[in-house]
Write a protein that binds this DNA or RNA. Structure first.
Lengths: 336, 336
DNA sequence: GAACATGCTTGTATCGCTACAAAGAATCGT
DNA sequence: ACGATTCTTTGTAGCGATACAAGCATGTTC
C-alpha cells in the first residue's frame, strides 16, 4: 500500500505538504500542488481513512440501522436520508439489525465502536430500560417510535392520529364490520409501532361506538406473506368483514391479495387502508388508500438533529422530539 | 473517550493484557480476565475501531454499493447478502451510488480508502474502460452485469436467456403484438442490463419470426412511474399491443397500473411479464409472471468470491464469473 | 538442584495520518 | 535597508490499538 510518505518522497516534498494538498489547505503554491497531485495520480495513492479517522476522531459517515432492509418503507426512508445527509456533507450507510431486539442493541453498541459519527436507529422494539444503553455521548437519533421516553433525540410519527384517520375513513365509507391486521397489544413498557397504531385505531372506533370485539385485531409480521396469512385467517373467522386497516402498506398489499384469492372484491366487498404511503402504494391495482407520513420532513429532521449533535450544536441535556405529520391519501382500495 | 490504557490502569494490568482479553487470546488467567472485563463494563469501554483497523489493516466490513437503495430488487439482494456475509463472519453495509456513472466510480475509489475489506458493486453503467479503475488489489465483485469483460470477479444473470424465455412465453400464450418496456439499445462498449434483456427479447422474437418494428421497444427508468409512463405512451402509439415484457418487475407493476388506468384488463387484453421475481411479484393483483433469477445462489456466489479474495484464497490473475440461472415463473399476469 | 518447558504478562515499536507550532522564504511599507 | 507581514513548507508528536518478542513466574523433569 502506498502511503503519504511515498507520495511525499516521489514529489520531493514533506508528508505534511501532501496532507495540505489533499485537504485543500490554503497556502500551498500552485506549482507544488500540481507536483503533489501528479505524484498521487502516478502512484495511485488513496488516503487511508483508518489513519485519518484515528487522528481526526471523526469519519464523516452516519449509520442508518434498520430492522429489515428488504421492506419498501425502509428503502424509501434510506433513500431520503442519504440525500439529506449528502447535503450536509455526510455519507450515510445502511446496516440491518434484523428486527431482533438483541441485534438492535448490538447495532447500537457496535456503532459506538465503528467508524460512524452518528447513528440513526429505526427501532422496532426498544424498552425504556434501553435508554440507559443509548444514553451517553454518542450522537443518536431514534426514528419512528412514539411511546419510548428515554432521554434521546427522536423523530416520530403521529401513529395514533394516523390510525384514527384510517378508522374514521373506513366508517365514513360505510364499513360496518371493520378489522385491523398487523395490530398488537403490547405491554406498557415496550411500545412499538403496532401497538400505537392499534391503540389509535381502537380508540377512534370506540369514540364512534363502532368498536366490536378484540378478536378483529390480528397480529401479523410486516411482510406480504404476513398480511396474506392474517387476512386469510380473518376471513375464516369473520367472513362479514367489510373494512380492514393494515398497520403497513406491505401488510395491506398481502391482504388485498388474500381477498382476491378468496374472491372478494376491493373495495366493493372490503375496503382496505394501509399506512406508510410507500411509492408502491400509488401503483398497485387497486391503488392503496393509506396514511401518508411526511417522509421528507422526517428525513430532514433526522439528519438535521444528528448533524447538529455531531457538530456539537446542542447540549448534552437538550433532547428534542419531532413529530411527523400524517395525512390520509384516499385511493381506490377504499373508494366505495 | 475511554481508551484501553484507562481500562488497563483501572484493572491494574497492562494495555496488552486488556487487548488479549478482548481478542480472546489464550494464556490469560481467569481471574485476570474477570478483572479486566469488570473494568471494561465499569468504564463503559468500547474498542476504537479506527485504531484497530489501522493496526490490523482489516475491518471485517464489506460494502455493497447499489445505484438506488429504494428499489425492491436491491433491498431483496441486500438482505440476502447481509445474511451470507454474516455467515462468513463479515458485516455488510449498503451504500448508494445514485445510478449516475460518476458516482459509481466514486464509490469504487472511495471504497478503497474507506474502511471496507471488499466491495460488491451492483453497477448499472460501466464501460470496459473502467476495468482499469477497478483492477488492482482491492477485492471487488461486480454484480448483475453480463457484457462487461474486464478482469474482475463477477456474478451475473442470464439476462438474455431470461428475456428470451419471457418472449417465448408471451408468444406461447397467443400474443401477436408484443412489446418491451424498459428496453434500450446501447453502444457496444456500455452494455447494461436493459440492453442485454432487450437483445435477448428481440433475438427470441426474431427466431420465431415475430419481430415487428423496433418502435415496440420503449425505454423507461426502473421505477413505477417510468413503467407507467412508458406503458401509457405505448398504448397511444400501438393500441393493439397484447403482450408486454418489462425489463424489471417494478416497471411491470407501473405498466399494469397504466393498463388499468386505460381500461385494459391484464391478462385478458394484455399479458405482462416482468424480470427479477422480487417478493412483491407474488402478491400483486394480478400476480406477476416474471423471470426469476436464483437470487440465493447469486448471493452465495458473491459473498463466497469476495471473502475468498479478502482472505487471499485466490491469486491475482484468477478471476471468475458465476452465472445465475433464471427460470420463468408463470403467474396471473400472463394466464390467458 | 540445575535445566527446561509452560503459563501468564508486559515493553516496545509501529500502523498512516494530521494538529500544532515554528521555521524559512518572499513581499511590503516606510 | 530593515523590520513587519504574509505566504509556504516542514519537524514533531501523538491518535489508540496490536504484533512481536522478551520477561518473569511457576511447574516439570531427570
Amino acid at each position: 500500500m502506498t502511503t503519504m510518505q511515498d507520495v511525499a518522497r516521489h514529489a520531493g516534498v514533506s508528508a505534511m505538504t501532501v496532507s495540505n494538498v489533499i485537504n485543500d489547505h490554503p497556502h500551498v503554491r500552485e506549482a507544488t500542488r500540481q507536483r503533489v497531485l501528479a505524484a498521487i495520480a502516478e502512484l495511485g495513492y488513496h488516503v487511508n481513512t483508518a489513519a485519518r479517522t484515528l487522528r481526526q476522531g471523526r469519519t464523516g459517515v452516519i449509520c442508518l440501522a434498520v430492522p429489515e432492509i428488504d421492506r419498501p418503507y425502509f428503502g424509501h426512508l434510506a433513500s431520503l436520508l442519504i440525500d439529506r445527509a449528502a447535503d450536509r456533507g455526510f455519507e450515510l450507510v445502511v446496516e440491518q439489525t434484523a428486527a431482533r431486539r438483541d441485534r438492535e442493541l448490538d447495532a447500537i453498541s457496535r456503532s459506538r465502536l465503528r467508524n460512524y459519527d452518528g447513528l440513526i436507529l429505526s427501532a422496532v422494539q426498544l424498552h425504556d430500560d434501553d435508554a440507559m444503553l443509548l444514553r451517553g455521548d454518542f450522537p443518536t437519533v431514534l426514528l419512528g417510535e412514539r411511546g419510548f421516553t428515554g432521554p434521546l433525540d427522536r423523530v416520530v410519527m403521529a401513529n395514533e392520529v394516523g390510525a384514527a384517520l384510517a378508522a374514521g375513513h373506513l366508517l365514513d365509507r360505510g364499513c360496518r364490520r371493520v378489522a385491523m391486521l398487523g395490530g398488537y397489544h403490547s405491554a406498557i413498557d415496550a411500545i412499538d409501532v403496532s401497538t400505537l397504531r392499534t391503540r389509535g385505531f381502537e380508540d377512534a372506533l370506540r369514540v364512534r361506538g363502532a368498536l366490536q370485539d378484540a378478536a378483529s385485531v390480528r397480529s401479523s409480521d410486516f411482510s406480504f406473506e404476513g398480511g396474506h396469512r392474517a387476512m386469510t385467517e380473518l376471513l375464516r373467522d369473520a367472513p362479514d368483514v367489510d373494512g380492514v386497516f393494515c398497520s403497513t402498506d406491505v401488510v395491506a398489499i398481502g391482504a388485498i391479495r388474500a381477498l382476491a384469492d378468496a374472491g372478494r372484491r376491493v373495495p366493493h366487498d372490503v375496503a382496505v387502508v394501509g399506512f406508510d404511503d410507500v411509492p408502491l402504494a400509488a401503483f398497485t391495482t387497486p391503488s392503496l388508500t393509506t396514511i401518508s407520513p411526511d417522509h421528507a420532513a422526517m428525513a430532514d429532521a433526522a439528519i438535521g438533529m444528528i448533524v447538529d449533535r455531531i457538530e456539537g450544536a446542542r447540549g448534552a441535556e437538550d433532547f428534542r422530539t419531532v413529530v411527523g405529520e400524517v395525512v390520509l391519501v384516499p385511493r381506490e382500495s377504499s373508494a366505495r
